[in-house]
């Protein structure tokens, strides 16, 4: 029973972090960033040295954890900010549909860039091996990694929440998310706020990359995609643009997936995701605005 709870929390952590990354950018730009998954993949590959060999040449993955973590977070944030400056800034006045397509295109560019450097074969990597030993918590055995994932996610979420509520930058971001034009008329610098949102979102992508890399022990081009799909759904269910909603829905979807995995009869388990999507459709039928509706649908920039 407790095991199910921990599984749900750790899967939910991934979805919540992913959903938050999408919601942050959507909030200030009304952009649904489909390249987010590829930013995650890029951050995972930053663990390796570029090579098309089957055997991974570990690069950043060999660093001690106190260097590794900031490095991967910075890689995610850096790529994310770069994509804003190089690509999305040019689409700021475009329609949401145009921006979405631009984000798809950017995602493909990142993915093919990785393919070129690393080939499409998944590579195995032993990242932070110390974390795979089991620990006992409240009578349930689980890998240390799972515990750290949950705790680290909660710490990040709390930190982000304090940041958004208590700092000058967080205030500007909340104001901009609600009515960007009005915020600008009060002197809030559009570029700074948007770049900040991209940096935070990218750092979250980096965090997901570290968790995925150490959980699965592989580096795979597909890695960001699967998490992203669920995370994207979580942002919609949570209420597009609502940060609390994204986190809540991320954990709910994680929980739903894990619970279905245990309660469904074995022959139905391969179709678990179909049940999850079914639940999603039901939620949207009854609450089309999402669980926590975001304020401010005023035009962006």
């Amino acid at each position: 029973m407790l095991q199910v709870l921990f599984d749900a929390l750790s899967l939910g952590s991934l979805y919540a972090l992913g959903a938050l990354g999408i919601a942050l950018i959507f909030g200030v730009m009304r952009l649904v960033n489909f390249a987010h998954g590829d930013v995650i993949a890029f951050a995972v590959f930053a663990l390796l040295w570029p090579s098309v060999d089957a055997v991974a040449i570990v690069f950043a993955g060999k660093m001690p954890w106190f260097l590794l973590i900031p490095f991967i977070l910075a890689v995610g944030a850096g790529l994310s900010v770069l994509s804003e400056v190089v690509v999305f800034r040019r689409f700021r006045h475009a329609s949401p549909a145009t921006m979405m397509i631009a984000s798809f295109a950017l995602g493909f560019v990142i993915r093919y860039f990785l393919l070129m450097l690393f080939s499409s074969r998944p590579k195995s990597i032993s990242l932070l091996p110390a974390l795979s030993q089991p620990v006992e918590v409240l009578g349930a055995r689980m890998p240390l990694l799972q515990l750290i994932t949950i705790v680290a996610t909660l710490v990040m979420l709390t930190g982000l929440s304090v940041f958004v509520r208590r700092t000058r930058f967080g205030l500007e971001m909340r104001a901009a998310a609600e009515n960007f034009t009005m915020a600008r008329m009060l002197g809030v610098r559009a570029n700074r706020v948007i770049m900040g949102a991209f940096a935070l979102s990218g750092a979250l992508a980096g965090a997901i990359a570290i968790i995925l890399g150490s959980q699965t022990g592989t580096v795979d081009i597909q890695m960001g995609g699967a998490v992203m799909l669920m995370a994207f759904i979580a942002t919609v269910i949570g209420g597009l643009g609502s940060l609390e909603g994204a986190v809540l829905a991320g954990f709910l979807i994680g929980a739903a997936s894990v619970v279905m995995q245990t309660v469904l009869p074995p022959e139905a388990r391969p179709f678990r995701d179909a049940f999850v999507y079914g639940a999603v459709i039901l939620v949207l039928l009854f609450r089309p605005q999402g669980l926590i509706a975001a304020r401010g649908t005023k035009e962006r920039v």
Binding site: R168, L171, E172, R174, A175, E178, N179, T181, M182, A183, L186, G187, V188, R189, R295, G296, K298
Partner: peptide, 17 residues
């Protein structure tokens, strides 16, 4: 165009950016 989800004081402070 007040920022409806922000408190009154927060609305005011946005302007000191």
């Amino acid at each position: 165009d007040v920022f409806g989800s922000l408190s009154i004081e927060e609305n005011l402070i946005v302007g000191t950016g």
